[in-house]
Design a binder for these strands. Sequence first.
DNA 1: TTGACACATTCCGATATGGGCATATGATGC
DNA 2: GCATCATATGCCCATATCGGAATGTGTCAA
Lengths: 120, 120
Amino acid sequence: MARAAAASDAFNAIAEPQRRQILVLLRGGERPVTELARNLGMTQPQASKHLRVLREVGLVRVRGAGKQRLYDLDARGLRPVHEWMGGFERFWSESFDRLDEYVQELKQARQEESHDGDDQ
Amino acid sequence: MARAAAASDAFNAIAEPQRRQILVLLRGGERPVTELARNLGMTQPQASKHLRVLREVGLVRVRGAGKQRLYDLDARGLRPVHEWMGGFERFWSESFDRLDEYVQELKQARQEESHDGDDQ
DNA sequence: TTGACACATTCCGATATGGGCATATGATGC
DNA sequence: GCATCATATGCCCATATCGGAATGTGTCAA
């Protein structure tokens, strides 16, 4: 099998760049399929397929509006991801502190180089 | 192709449940491959493969320690995910408010039912 | 050097995915 | 009913992925 099962959870759903883009677009309100497809430069069937996945994992909802079907963001579907990420919050500051340290080290190293060596 | 390219970014890397578990374990500090494999009930080659993916997207770092190789979490790799998720923050409260409303409606509906109908 | 241990890589098979294209389904208006 | 527009599905192909088993590589000890 490729990937545990189907794109059966939010994590898999947002692993696809185009699906992420769809979700971003939907932050601006509900949109019909064709508009999404056009905005993202994909074909209509592709948009439909991605939307199907997003629907199955509960990230979007649909509403019929005449001939059109308006897709709407359902951010609750992102909760699992949000929560999982939450477990790493405490590492953000640490990591960035370490990154800062690194930058400092770099600066210092540069200075020392310019003392004996010169640039490279 | 299945999925844009390889599991070439953090989103893809964390789409795999086992890889997520590895990351969670690594929150407790660096660990050798075998221990990870044992803790997660997977074979050593599998652990190695997942760790390779995690390394390639910058989610873990390795350090040789004698015969062992200690893997360490690098939470900075989660930044793209964190930032992308951030774009949806404002929907959390909204969604949950809406969920609360829904719960309220349910309660009310139940009460009204118990007036004319009875339970159900 | 040889052996033991920890880990990485490779090859295989099964399966799922995304893209492209054709086509089916659905709703609307005439 | 019929034509049309909007969307959903089905099919095929190329490719990537995961799992399993075998094997390669690296390190340490004697």
